[in-house]
């Protein structure tokens, strides 16, 4: 299997209010237009390059996790990654928001030595896929 080629990276501030403003149609108001317009060259770049895969690295504003268990690093494996619902964009379901859920892959997995290792105890079953 050929390794992928990294063609670029994009960065964005992550204030939750940005998504809310965009979802509630404030992208063209004087307050938000300068910031929202900043995304347009990035959108054009993605459109032109058509990457096969995007890896999204994001922090968690106490949305998915709570302080009883807060991992330093976590890998989200799912067919679809929903946006956290804190009620800011109330009245709009995740299907009709301007920013939809992110498509993902439920087949992603860690490629490593341990993926076919034997159980260390006595059952001798194969662990992993």
């Amino acid at each position: 299997m050929a390794h992928g080629r990294i063609i670029g990276g994009l960065g964005s501030p992550h204030a939750p209010s940005i998504g809310v403003a965009y979802n509630t149609g404030k992208g063209e108001t004087p307050a938000w237009k300068p910031l929202i317009d900043g995304y347009k060259p990035m959108q054009a770049w993605i459109e032109a390059k058509k990457p096969d895969l995007m890896i999204i690295v994001a922090n968690d504003h106490a949305n998915s996790f709570f302080f009883d268990r807060y991992p330093t690093f976590a890998l989200s494996v799912a067919a679809e990654h929903e946006i956290a619902d804190e009620g800011w964009a109330s009245g709009r379901c995740r299907r009709c928001r301007a920013i939809p859920s992110s498509p993902g892959s439920s087949r992603i997995r860690w490629w490593g030595r341990s993926s076919t290792s034997r159980c260390a105890r006595s059952c001798r079953s194969t662990t992993g896929a």
Partner: peptide, 20 residues
């Protein structure tokens, strides 16, 4: 943080539309 834990956890419940 530990003193505020219960109140923080209460606020976390607002992630659910039912609680809101």
């Amino acid at each position: 943080a530990q003193r505020g834990y219960r109140l923080s956890k209460f606020c976390m419940a607002f992630m659910s539309p039912e609680t809101r």
